[in-house]
Amino acid sequence: MSDNFTHNEKLLKIFAGIRCLNKDQLPRYLEGRLTDIEKHLVEQHLVDCDLCYEALQSLQKEGQMEQYQTLSAGIQQYIRDSIKPVSQLQKMERYIRKSKKRESLLIYFWVVAFIAGGGAGLYLMQEYNRNKPVMARPAALPIVPAAAMSTTPPPDSARHQEASLADKSEIPVAAAPRKDTVKAAPPAPQKPAADSIVVTRAAPTPPAPKTEDSVKKPATAANTPKEEKEKDTPATTVAKTQAPPPATPPPAKPATSTAMDTDEFLYKAAMVYQQQGDLNEAISRYKRLTSNTGRVGELARYQLGICYREKKQNGRARRMFKEVVRMDGSMKQAAQQALDNL
């Protein structure tokens, strides 16, 4: 069975691909120096290959072998000579091309890296400008000067407060760069909120120690957790960082300005949040002040309106501005203008 299979397998020999005769085989075949297997393989190849068969026929004739040897060596040398220099040149060219490619890739990389870096830088700058805390640009929002706030009376009597707020209708409200607020705010000397807070915070206490104590004590007794919480607010931190040296006290401050009302403090803290762009926090803080019917309440409502308007909640903003108009305070005109612009 296996013998039959081997016999059959020999059939595939008919179409086995056999290489042409090489330089050694050619003379050896002519001289009959090949083994039986080798000779049979050569003859199998000769059946198909006209080139080898003609070469053998040509060499079988007398006197050809010598010429063949010389010419064969000559043509091989010729091929090697003609290929070698070209090959060397090719290698050089390839090397140069490779190095150029590497260089150009490096250049592309740096160009791309530079563009990407530049783009990222620009993007970051834009993002920074967009989310920049308004502290850096104090006139971004309508700001009530701290002097006005600090002059509010201590919360011992509502009557006093109202009276002082009524007086403060003369006190200018800081002009804001926004269209409506600029129009709304009466012309006044501007003072950044931060500075005003600082001034009030950094104001030396010695001139009115008694009043401050008397004011602060009940406040601390009543609102200790609140104050503690608010101590950590950005307003205080900003105030601390920007506080001028205590050696230069503000000129001639009234004694009432040193006393810090809780509502005022809340209002200022809310202002700082608003300036930093944290509108939700600012709104929640302003809302706490809406119960106040005095000047602070009016200002808080006005700022609430602005916050809502910034949040595109125009209905709420309109309601707030209307309330301010209804209160008929110093912000009436500004609120009316804001309402018109809505």
Partner: peptide, 19 residues
């Protein structure tokens, strides 16, 4: 180089056929 190797492989047959 590959071209050279190929032609060199058949160069002896080329010579023999041209003789």
């Amino acid at each position: 180089e590959a071209e050279g190797v190929l032609l060199e492989r058949y160069s002896h047959l080329l010579v023999a056929v041209c003789l």
